[in-house]
């Protein structure tokens, strides 16, 4: 097996607030191979975005990475200074945000911003930087890129803005892109266009992708492997086919049952009772135990250990869903 592009090991990112410690990410481990797409799935507050921000080194006080390691192509990122992180960010590691207006400066033209991104890591002429920008825009399917280069962000539609953000992320051909819900705010047909572009670009360039989303259906269509997060932990991970066809963790099973359109129309959806717990006050045992239909006495005793199976399959549950129910 190839050396992973990204290896996250036992990562813990906590926020030290006045109301106590919020363990947003608590012991998360996963790897991403070159050219691989990992879907990081979870609901609001599950810690999926904080995991992404931790990898980028973008955690601000009161939050900090308290333990664990993040290795990008074998090099440790945890504990680097801001200056050292800046050298990595944008070059071998890039991020795409949900709202492209977070990436783009509204008062600068697209060419200024894109050429700035080129110059940040490479000493090239204005002309060469401009050519790179045109190339990147063409790559993400923006028509007549030379003309569009001198436009301002507000002159683009939402879908086009997201393409520009992706183009900026791709400029230095990073080894890894972290995408945080980049298509959630877009219309279905536009989302499809973006997914098609991303799929093509990753296949061509061998860039690995961590796709953070709440939408299991998008992950099904895009990812090779999936990791499901709940209350700061990965409760299940493995190949997409394995996890979606035969979920072992009751939470994954419940999530799949909650997706409308797959279940019989008009029938009740297999809902998960209750709502996501507050991260400040987690139950002592398994965090999902209060909502779980398969909970047993031992679930309340302590956090379930990680059980590992073949082909990177892992889950945290002592009473997993049996095969006959999972189908």
């Amino acid at each position: 097996m190839a050396e992973p592009v990204l290896a996250v090991d036992n990562l813990a990112t906590h926020f030290f607030t006045r109301d106590g410690v919020v363990k947003s990410v608590d012991g998360v481990s996963f790897t991403v191979a070159p050219g691989e797409v990992l879907g990081l799935v979870g609901e609001s507050g599950s810690g999926k975005s904080v995991t992404g921000f931790s990898i980028m080194g973008l955690i601000d006080p009161p939050g900090r990475i308290v333990s664990g390691s993040i290795r990008l192509k074998g090099e440790e990122l945890v504990g680097r200074t801001e200056a050292e992180m800046r050298a990595v960010r944008g070059r071998s590691l890039a991020m795409i945000f949900q709202d492209p207006m977070m990436t783009l400066n509204p008062v600068l033209r697209i060419d200024t911003q894109m050429m700035e991104a080129v110059h940040a890591h490479e000493k090239v002429s204005e002309k060469a930087a401009r050519d790179r920008a045109v190339q990147a825009l063409a790559q993400v399917g923006i028509p007549s890129p030379e003309e569009r280069l001198s436009a301002y962000p507000h002159q683009f539609s939402g879908g086009m803005r997201q393409r520009v953000a992706i183009a900026i992320a791709l400029i230095h051909r990073p080894a890894l892109i972290i995408a945080d819900e980049p298509t959630t705010a877009l219309d279905v047909t536009i989302q499809s266009q973006i997914l098609a572009e991303v799929q093509k670009l990753c296949a061509e360039s061998g860039t690995a992708l961590v796709w953070i989303t709440h939408d299991l259906a998008v992950v099904a269509g895009l990812a090779d492997r999936v990791a499901v997060m709940y209350a700061g932990r990965i409760v299940e991970q493995g190949r997409v086919d394995d996890v979606l066809d035969r979920p072992l963790h009751p939470y994954t099973h419940g999530l799949i049952g909650s997706v409308p359109g797959e279940a019989m129309p008009g029938k009740r959806l297999a809902q998960i009772p209750g709502s996501t717990p507050s991260l400040g006050r987690l139950p002592p045992g398994c965090a999902f135990e209060p909502r779980c239909s398969r909970a047993v006495e031992a679930c309340r005793a302590g956090a379930p250990p990680l059980a590992e199976g073949p082909q990177g399959r892992a889950y945290r549950c002592i009473n997993p869903v049996p095969a006959e129910e999972a189908a």
């Binding site: 047909t189 499809s192 266009q193 090779d224 797959e262």
Partner: peptide
């Protein structure tokens, strides 16, 4: 037809996303 083709589905794995060109 385009809308239905573009809906992400749990059972469509590693699919190629068919696209409608252009924007609204």
């Amino acid at each position: 037809r385009a809308l239905l083709d573009n809906v992400p589905r749990l059972d469509a794995r590693k699919r190629s996303f068919s696209t409608v060109k252009g924007e609204i």
